[in-house]
Structures are given as C-alpha cells and as structure tokens.
C-alpha cells in the first residue's frame, strides 16, 4: 500500500464532498493493492485493471452509503470482490463447469473445473516459480482462493477477511487452512524442487 498523505477521516470527508483531490488520493493509495488482489484472484491482468477501475467508480457512486466507523480498506476490497465475482460468473456462463460441495462447517463451496489451459500473465509473473504458484492458485475453488489471497498475499487480518467476504470468522479460518492444504498438494513438486525432501 502506498503511503497516505492524509488520515482516513479527512480522505472520507473529501470523498463525501466528491472532491477530485480526495478521489485521486484514494486511487494513488489503493490502486496497486486492488489490481494485485484482482489479478491473483481472477488470473488476468487486463481483467484485474478493469476490476480496480470499476471498484473506484463504484466508490464514487456509492460513497454516501459508506458507514462511518467502517474501514475504508475493507470496504474497497469488498467492492472489488463483488466486481471480481461478477467477472467469474460471466466466465462461467461461457462454458465453465462448476460443482457445489460443502465445507467442514456445512457452508456451500463452489468448485470450478480447473482451466488447465490457463497461463499466467508473463508481464507480472516473469519467473517460472511465480507462474507455477499462480497456476496452482487458479486451480483452487474461488472461496478458498480469495481467503488465501487476502490473508497470505494482501496481508489482511482474519477479522478483515470476514468483513470483506461477509462471512463468519470460523469459516474464514477454515477456508484459509483448506486452501493452503490444497495449494501444498498442488505445489508438491515445486516444494521438492526448491527445498528437497519435505
């Protein structure tokens, strides 16, 4: 996250007044985080930029609905998440097969048939290791993927993730653990290559 030049309350006040200055500051601080989150979640850099842009447009449109006392960062991630899911839904309508299962706590989790032809964007993931990890991430169910990305890549706390995903804390922890376990399985070969016998 880029360094903010003003405190959050001042920034929110400027946004509520629809001041361009506030809007530019918001984008300067959060644009890279949102693009990175969206890229790791939906796997396409161009779509990720679209997600981030749409997120800021929605912020401008719905800033009046922002609840005082809420965290701006989690609100932004929540909007970006909704936009990203709508892109995934759009893709699903174009022929991807999905299956629904339940997790340990009985919540429905959607599994998509992994796209084995997926290749990461080489302008972002220039190394082979990074490409392998991104490929493995894309093979996780979206609910697990978003939890792992928000926790281990974006560094959000469990509480913040629960707020973003509008779910319970226990569910978040469960999804993170299961997502990590699945990633470990998918990256087993890479582990052995990098760290020897594990």
């Amino acid at each position: 996250m880029a360094r903010a030049t003003m405190d959050e309350q001042t920034l929110i006040a400027l946004l509520l007044e629809r001041k361009e200055e506030g809007f530019r500051e918001l984008m300067r601080v959060y644009k890279d985080d949102l693009v990175n989150y969206a890229y790791r979640f939906i796997g396409s850099y161009d779509d990720a930029v679209d997600v981030a842009q749409e997120t800021f447009i929605r912020v401008f449109r719905f800033i009046d609905t922002f609840q005082q006392g809420a965290r701006l960062r989690t609100w932004l991630y929540a909007i970006a998440r909704n936009v990203a899911f709508s892109i995934l839904d759009e893709r699903k309508r174009h022929g991807t097969i999905s299956m629904i299962d339940t997790d340990e706590e009985g919540h429905e989790v959607e599994y998509e048939a992994p796209d084995l032809t997926y290749t990461p964007d080489r302008s972002v993931d220039s190394t082979l290791i990074a490409q392998q990890i991104q490929q493995a991430l894309m093979r996780l169910p979206p609910a697990f993927r978003e939890a792992v990305v928000l926790r281990d890549i974006e560094g959000l706390s469990y509480e913040e993730i629960a707020e973003v995903c509008k779910t319970e804390l226990g569910t978040v922890k469960s999804r993170i653990n299961r997502g990590r376990a699945m990633l470990q399985e998918l990256l087993r070969d890479l582990y052995q290559e990098l760290f020897g016998e594990q």
Partner: peptide
C-alpha cells in the same frame, strides 16, 4: 505452511 506463506508473500506484485 511457513514456506508456502513465504512463497505467496514473495510473489511479484501486479501494479496499476
């Protein structure tokens, strides 16, 4: 898990 988290943390970041 620690290794995995380290790898994820060190992934290159996409920027706008």
């Amino acid at each position: 898990v620690t290794l995995l988290r380290r790898m994820l943390k060190e992934l290159p970041r996409a920027s706008a």
